[in-house]
Computed example of a mutant assay.
Amino acid sequence: MYDFRPDAELAKPELYRQLHDAAAALTDGEPDGIANMANVAALMWEYVPGLNWAGFYRMVDGGLVLGPFAGRPACIRIPFGSGVCGAAAASGETQLVEDVHAFPGHIACDAASRSELVVPVIRDGDVIAVIDLDSPHLARFDGEDAAGIEALAAMLATRI
Protein backbone atom coordinates (compact mmCIF):
# COMPACT_ATOMS: atom_id res chain seq x y z
CA MET A 1 0.00 0.00 0.00
CA TYR A 2 1.19 3.48 -0.85
CA ASP A 3 0.50 6.45 1.38
CA PHE A 4 2.24 9.45 -0.12
CA ARG A 5 1.07 12.58 1.66
CA PRO A 6 3.03 15.79 1.82
CA ASP A 7 3.24 18.06 4.83
CA ALA A 8 1.31 21.21 3.95
CA GLU A 9 3.99 23.34 5.64
CA LEU A 10 6.91 22.15 3.49
CA ALA A 11 9.02 24.70 1.63
CA LYS A 12 8.66 24.26 -2.14
CA PRO A 13 12.11 22.72 -2.76
CA GLU A 14 11.44 20.03 -0.14
CA LEU A 15 7.89 19.46 -1.40
CA TYR A 16 9.19 18.91 -4.93
CA ARG A 17 11.99 16.67 -3.68
CA GLN A 18 9.42 14.50 -1.93
CA LEU A 19 7.16 14.52 -5.01
CA HIS A 20 10.12 13.45 -7.14
CA ASP A 21 11.04 10.66 -4.72
CA ALA A 22 7.45 9.40 -4.56
CA ALA A 23 7.17 9.43 -8.36
CA ALA A 24 10.51 7.65 -8.70
CA ALA A 25 9.40 4.96 -6.25
CA LEU A 26 6.04 4.42 -7.99
CA THR A 27 7.47 4.28 -11.52
CA ASP A 28 10.65 2.32 -10.80
CA GLY A 29 10.66 -0.83 -12.89
CA GLU A 30 7.17 -0.28 -14.34
CA PRO A 31 7.37 -0.40 -18.15
CA ASP A 32 3.86 0.92 -18.85
CA GLY A 33 4.12 4.64 -19.53
CA ILE A 34 0.38 5.29 -19.25
CA ALA A 35 0.26 3.68 -15.81
CA ASN A 36 3.25 5.75 -14.75
CA MET A 37 1.67 8.98 -16.00
CA ALA A 38 -1.55 8.12 -14.16
CA ASN A 39 0.23 7.64 -10.85
CA VAL A 40 2.34 10.76 -11.30
CA ALA A 41 -0.74 12.85 -12.18
CA ALA A 42 -2.33 11.66 -8.94
CA LEU A 43 0.83 12.51 -7.01
CA MET A 44 1.01 16.02 -8.48
CA TRP A 45 -2.64 16.56 -7.57
CA GLU A 46 -1.88 15.45 -4.01
CA TYR A 47 1.42 17.32 -3.57
CA VAL A 48 1.00 20.64 -5.37
CA PRO A 49 -1.48 22.97 -3.67
CA GLY A 50 -3.76 25.37 -5.51
CA LEU A 51 -4.37 23.33 -8.66
CA ASN A 52 -7.52 22.72 -10.65
CA TRP A 53 -5.79 20.40 -13.17
CA ALA A 54 -2.62 18.29 -13.20
CA GLY A 55 -1.61 15.87 -15.89
CA PHE A 56 -0.02 15.01 -19.18
CA TYR A 57 -0.46 15.58 -22.87
CA ARG A 58 1.36 13.06 -25.10
CA MET A 59 2.93 13.73 -28.49
CA VAL A 60 0.99 11.67 -31.04
CA ASP A 61 1.18 12.13 -34.81
CA GLY A 62 2.64 15.64 -34.56
CA GLY A 63 0.14 16.98 -32.01
CA LEU A 64 -0.71 16.67 -28.35
CA VAL A 65 -3.27 14.15 -27.12
CA LEU A 66 -4.71 14.09 -23.63
CA GLY A 67 -2.99 11.70 -21.26
CA PRO A 68 -3.67 10.74 -17.65
CA PHE A 69 -4.70 13.64 -15.42
CA ALA A 70 -6.51 14.73 -12.27
CA GLY A 71 -9.15 17.45 -12.50
CA ARG A 72 -12.09 18.37 -14.68
CA PRO A 73 -12.49 16.99 -18.20
CA ALA A 74 -10.04 18.59 -20.62
CA CYS A 75 -9.37 19.27 -24.28
CA ILE A 76 -8.53 15.99 -25.99
CA ARG A 77 -6.28 17.28 -28.80
CA ILE A 78 -4.07 20.36 -28.93
CA PRO A 79 -2.35 21.27 -32.20
CA PHE A 80 1.44 21.48 -32.07
CA GLY A 81 2.36 25.10 -31.28
CA SER A 82 -1.13 26.10 -30.08
CA GLY A 83 -1.86 27.33 -26.57
CA VAL A 84 0.51 27.02 -23.63
CA CYS A 85 0.91 23.25 -23.98
CA GLY A 86 1.53 23.46 -27.71
CA ALA A 87 4.06 26.27 -27.18
CA ALA A 88 5.98 24.12 -24.68
CA ALA A 89 5.94 21.16 -27.08
CA ALA A 90 7.07 23.28 -30.06
CA SER A 91 9.83 25.15 -28.22
CA GLY A 92 10.97 22.36 -25.91
CA GLU A 93 10.98 24.98 -23.16
CA THR A 94 9.04 25.40 -19.94
CA GLN A 95 6.12 27.81 -20.15
CA LEU A 96 5.34 29.63 -16.88
CA VAL A 97 2.29 31.80 -17.48
CA GLU A 98 1.07 34.11 -14.72
CA ASP A 99 -2.17 35.03 -16.53
CA VAL A 100 -3.37 32.60 -19.18
CA HIS A 101 -5.85 35.13 -20.53
CA ALA A 102 -2.91 37.32 -21.60
CA PHE A 103 -1.18 34.41 -23.40
CA PRO A 104 -1.61 34.67 -27.19
CA GLY A 105 -3.65 31.74 -28.47
CA HIS A 106 -4.50 30.38 -25.01
CA ILE A 107 -6.84 27.38 -25.21
CA ALA A 108 -9.41 27.53 -22.41
CA CYS A 109 -10.21 23.92 -21.54
CA ASP A 110 -11.40 25.05 -18.09
CA ALA A 111 -12.61 28.64 -17.76
CA ALA A 112 -11.56 28.59 -14.08
CA SER A 113 -7.85 28.35 -14.97
CA ARG A 114 -5.95 31.60 -14.45
CA SER A 115 -2.29 30.53 -14.46
CA GLU A 116 -0.40 27.61 -15.96
CA LEU A 117 2.92 25.80 -15.83
CA VAL A 118 3.79 23.48 -18.72
CA VAL A 119 7.04 21.50 -18.79
CA PRO A 120 8.14 19.41 -21.77
CA VAL A 121 9.27 15.84 -21.20
CA ILE A 122 12.24 15.30 -23.51
CA ARG A 123 13.78 11.95 -24.46
CA ASP A 124 16.73 11.72 -26.85
CA GLY A 125 16.21 15.34 -27.89
CA ASP A 126 12.52 14.92 -28.74
CA VAL A 127 9.50 16.18 -26.80
CA ILE A 128 7.46 13.07 -26.01
CA ALA A 129 4.91 14.71 -23.68
CA VAL A 130 4.24 17.76 -21.57
CA ILE A 131 3.35 18.02 -17.91
CA ASP A 132 0.56 20.57 -17.49
CA LEU A 133 -0.43 22.22 -14.21
CA ASP A 134 -3.32 24.69 -14.10
CA SER A 135 -4.45 26.88 -11.23
CA PRO A 136 -7.49 29.07 -10.62
CA HIS A 137 -5.12 31.62 -8.99
CA LEU A 138 -3.25 34.31 -10.90
CA ALA A 139 0.55 33.97 -10.76
CA ARG A 140 0.30 30.68 -8.82
CA PHE A 141 3.56 29.30 -10.23
CA ASP A 142 7.13 30.57 -9.86
CA GLY A 143 10.67 29.48 -10.60
CA GLU A 144 10.70 26.99 -7.73
CA ASP A 145 7.62 25.28 -9.15
CA ALA A 146 9.20 25.22 -12.61
CA ALA A 147 12.46 23.75 -11.28
CA GLY A 148 10.59 21.07 -9.33
CA ILE A 149 8.47 19.97 -12.28
CA GLU A 150 11.46 20.14 -14.64
CA ALA A 151 13.34 17.69 -12.38
CA LEU A 152 10.27 15.44 -12.37
CA ALA A 153 10.04 15.59 -16.18
CA ALA A 154 13.72 14.69 -16.56
CA MET A 155 13.29 11.64 -14.32
CA LEU A 156 10.15 10.54 -16.16
CA ALA A 157 11.66 10.86 -19.64
CA THR A 158 12.64 7.19 -19.67
CA ARG A 159 9.58 5.98 -17.75
CA ILE A 160 6.68 7.19 -19.89
Score class of each variant (00 low, 15 high):
residue 7 D to I: 08
residue 8 A to Q: 14
residue 9 E to F: 14
residue 14 E to R: 12
residue 16 Y to N: 03
residue 19 L to T: 04
residue 20 H to I: 06
residue 20 H to W: 10
residue 21 D to W: 11
residue 25 A to M: 13
residue 28 D to E: 10
residue 29 G to I: 07
residue 29 G to V: 03
residue 30 E to Y: 10
residue 31 P to K: 09
residue 31 P to Q: 09
residue 32 D to C: 07
residue 33 G to K: 05
residue 35 A to Q: 12
residue 37 M to W: 08
residue 40 V to D: 02
residue 43 L to Y: 03
residue 44 M to V: 15
residue 44 M to S: 06
residue 46 E to A: 14
residue 47 Y to N: 04
residue 49 P to S: 00
residue 49 P to A: 03
residue 49 P to F: 00
residue 51 L to M: 00
residue 51 L to H: 02
residue 52 N to Y: 01
residue 52 N to G: 01
residue 53 W to V: 01
residue 58 R to P: 00
residue 59 M to A: 15
residue 60 V to D: 13
residue 60 V to S: 11
residue 64 L to I: 05
residue 68 P to C: 03
residue 68 P to R: 03
residue 68 P to Y: 00
residue 69 F to R: 00
residue 74 A to I: 05
residue 74 A to F: 13
residue 76 I to L: 12
residue 81 G to R: 09
residue 81 G to D: 11
residue 83 G to Y: 04
residue 84 V to W: 05
residue 85 C to A: 15
residue 91 S to C: 07
residue 93 E to N: 12
residue 93 E to H: 12
residue 93 E to L: 14
residue 96 L to T: 03
residue 103 F to I: 05
residue 103 F to S: 01
residue 105 G to M: 06
residue 108 A to I: 09
residue 111 A to N: 09
residue 112 A to K: 14
residue 115 S to P: 00
residue 117 L to I: 05
residue 119 V to K: 05
residue 121 V to F: 02
residue 125 G to M: 08
residue 126 D to E: 13
residue 129 A to Q: 09
residue 133 L to S: 07
residue 134 D to W: 10
residue 134 D to H: 09
residue 135 S to N: 10
residue 136 P to K: 08
residue 138 L to Y: 12
residue 138 L to K: 07
residue 144 E to W: 07
residue 146 A to I: 06
residue 146 A to K: 10
residue 149 I to M: 11
residue 150 E to R: 14
residue 151 A to K: 15
residue 152 L to D: 03
residue 153 A to Y: 04
residue 153 A to M: 03
residue 153 A to K: 03
residue 154 A to G: 13
residue 157 A to P: 05
residue 159 R to V: 04
residue 159 R to L: 02
